[in-house]
Amino acid sequence: MANIISASHLTLGYGNNDADIIKNANFKIKKGDFVFITGPSGSGKSTLLRSFYGQLRPKSGNLLVGAQDMGKISKKKLQELRTHFGIIFQDYKLINEWSVAKNVVLPLVIAGYNADVQETQAKRLLKHVKLSEHADRLPLELSGGEQQRIGVARALAKNPTLILADEPTGNLDEYSSNVIWDLMENANEQLDATVVVVTHRIPNIFSIPYRHLIIENKGIYEVH
């Protein structure tokens, strides 16, 4: 299987004069992998994830995402690359002025799909995350678990090749967390999407094979 993410001697940090957060890291993530990245608070899990979607450029070393060198990628190429990603945030990052249905099809709006396609896909996705009856409501009228399901549906809207999730169950109760994990397992198995999840705890019940990377002392190591 081809690598979808490849890092060699990767060093990350927010400013040239600030301390490095990740230092000299080497790892590869293959297409179709389900990867958990764990580590203590402040270890740089979210920072690493941000570098995958180009919000943070490497200080040194190489980071290839979908064959694009993230240190040199142009704004235009990055914009195009991001349309192949599904990103899930701990605090959902939904557009609160938009209806649930419109939030779900945001990637399709960006890709310029017509209203009919958007409507059909919104119905399909909301049925998939069991929120069909809330299509016309605003996100803030729903519970945290339901909002995160909208976030997952949005991430799946355009059949992404790579799903990046930053503590997707961090704010949720056990029941809602299990629903989210089920949806992510399905995405990996049925859509063949590569899934990278940053979390402080791997779920106890997880039915598909996965890889585990851990961040320790600024380095990234694989747990076997």
């Binding site: 979607y53 914009q79 991001r82 990603f85 990103i87 990052k93 002025e97 945001l106 960006i110």
Partner: peptide
């Protein structure tokens, strides 16, 4: 800002 940033993360062009 937040709405525009979310759209940017999902690859929206400046115009959009």
């Amino acid at each position: 800002r937040e709405r525009m940033q979310v759209m940017e993360i999902f690859g929206a062009s400046t115009m959009l």
